[in-house]
Simulated assay, not measured.
Amino acid sequence: MTEVLLFSSIIAPIVMALVEVVKKTVNTPINLIPVIALVIGLIVGFAAQPFSDLDLTLRLWAGVLAGLAGTGLYETVKQRNGESKGGEQ
């Protein structure tokens, strides 16, 4: 499990960058961004076979974790202005 977490932390910035490329080039609804990040994480995890000795299942799990973590990481550091929906104080 340690290898999966390490591998996912390595590929999370890559997934986050690819999600940003997709967001900038394709007009996508905001609520689909986590699904897109998950799919990109799976693809990156699958494609990382030459760089890791983990088997396919563990690489795919790491890709899922990286996709979801990359989305959460971006949303955490992104500047937000305004109020949440509802706006009551």
Rank of each mutant, 00 (worst) to 15 (best):
Ala66Pro: 08
Ala47Asp: 06
Gly41Arg: 02
Glu3Ile: 07
Val77Lys: 03
Met1Arg: 05
Asn81Gly: 13
Val26Asn: 01
Ala17Cys: 11
Ala66Met: 09
Asp53Met: 08
Thr25Ala: 15
Gly86Leu: 02
Met1Ile: 04
Val35Gln: 07
Asp53Ser: 15
Glu3Ala: 13
Ser52Asp: 09
Gly63His: 11
Leu38Pro: 01
Ala62His: 06
Gln49Pro: 01
Met1Leu: 08
Leu56Pro: 03
Asn31Ala: 07
Glu83Arg: 13
Gly86Ile: 00
Leu68Asp: 02
Ile11Asn: 06
Lys24Met: 01
Gly87Asn: 12
Trp61Phe: 12
Leu5Thr: 00
Gly63Pro: 13
Gly45Arg: 14
Thr25Asp: 09
Ala37Asn: 10
Val64His: 02
Val44Lys: 13
Gly86Asp: 01
Met16Arg: 07
Leu60Ser: 03
Ile30Trp: 12
Ala47Arg: 02
Asp53Ala: 15
Gly70Gln: 11
Glu88Ile: 04
Lys78Ile: 02
Thr57Ala: 15
Gly63Asn: 09
Asp53Glu: 14
Leu68Phe: 07
Pro50Ser: 11
Glu20Ala: 14
Gly63Glu: 13
Asn31Ser: 10
Gln79His: 00
Met1Asn: 07
Glu88Lys: 08
Gly86Pro: 00
Lys85His: 14
Tyr74Gly: 11
Ser84Pro: 05
Val26Ser: 00
Leu60Met: 14
Ser52Pro: 06
Ala48Asn: 09
Gly41Lys: 03
Thr71Ala: 05
Ser52His: 12
Asn27Gly: 04
Asn81Gln: 12
Arg80Ser: 00
Asn27Trp: 02
Glu88Met: 04
Val21Leu: 15
Ile36Lys: 10
Ile30Thr: 14
Met1Glu: 13
Ala66Asp: 11
Val26Leu: 14
Ser8Phe: 04
Val26Thr: 10
Thr71Val: 07
Lys78Met: 01
Leu18Gln: 13
Leu54Phe: 02
Ala12Arg: 11
Ala48Thr: 13
Glu88Val: 09
Leu56Tyr: 09
Ala12Asp: 03
Thr71Phe: 13
Val19His: 05
Ala17Asp: 10
Pro50Met: 08
Lys24Asn: 12
Ala12Ser: 13
Leu73Ala: 12
Ile11Gly: 09
Leu5Pro: 00
Leu60Thr: 08
Asp53Thr: 14
Leu18Val: 06
Leu42Trp: 03
Gly72Thr: 08
Lys78Pro: 00
Val21Tyr: 08
Phe7Asn: 14
Ser9Gly: 15
Val26Glu: 03
Gly45Pro: 12
Leu68Trp: 07
Ala37Arg: 07
Thr28Glu: 08
Asp53Gln: 15
Val39Glu: 08
Leu32Ser: 08
Ile11Ser: 11
Glu20Ile: 04
Val15Phe: 03
Gly45Ser: 15
Val21Cys: 07
Tyr74Pro: 01
Gly41His: 02
Ala17Ser: 13
Ile40Asn: 04
Pro34Arg: 10
Tyr74Trp: 09
Ile11Thr: 04
Asn27Ile: 05
Ser84Leu: 15
Lys85Ser: 12
Ala48Ser: 15
Asp53Cys: 06
Thr2Ser: 13
Leu32Cys: 04
Val21Ile: 15
Ala48Pro: 03
Thr76Cys: 01
Pro13Lys: 00
Ala62Glu: 07
Leu73Pro: 00
Lys23Asp: 05
Ile36Asp: 06
Ala48Cys: 06
Leu65Glu: 11
